[in-house]
Amino acid sequence: MRALTAFMNGVTRLNDFIGRWVAWLVAAMFVLLLLEVGFRYLLNAPTVWTNELTQMLFGVYAILSGGYIMAHRGHVNVDLLYSHFGRRTRAGLDIFTSIVFFIFTLALLYFGADMAQESIRNLETTYSAWNPPIWPIKAAIPLGAGLLVLQGVVKLLQDIAIAFNLSYYTPEPEEEAGEHV
């Protein structure tokens, strides 16, 4: 049981750590776009790489956010019925609906990995004027999906613990989902 607890905490901490770093990419995107505007408007010398790099960073930023947001209960749901139920009923429902969650995320993990593997094998590049390697960005899809799946497993274990009163997880005091850091 202790291993289970350690696993759950470890995954959450991993997603937290990754999230805190990846969150800074917004600053990078800001700088890059502004640079391009400067190069093009002030120097009349647009670059071939800024917009494309911004785009790539944005893709990584978005796909890697899944697990972090899951850890912070930031994926928005409809609480119409849900909020009327007690905690254990909600956990039971979440266990049931997690089937749909895992179908989606595992399909994404499997086919994302397939897509990434093919890209890595060919060391695929974008064939734009800049022509940077694209495979690291494609590899971010299975990575992001994997982090989300892991956090989903943590959530499932938590729900099982709540629903069946198991000791390996003590839920925090009641708090509703919403934006809080």
Binding site: E36, R40, N44, A45, P46, T47, V48, N51, E52, Y127, S128, A129
Partner: peptide, 23 residues
């Protein structure tokens, strides 16, 4: 002096030729 919207190989070509090509 042109700023040209381009893409792919032609973007590279226009840049080499001296225009300011961006995607």
């Amino acid at each position: 002096r042109l700023k040209i919207r381009s893409s792919g190989a032609l973007q590279k070509f226009l840049t080499e030729a001296g225009a300011a090509a961006s995607y």
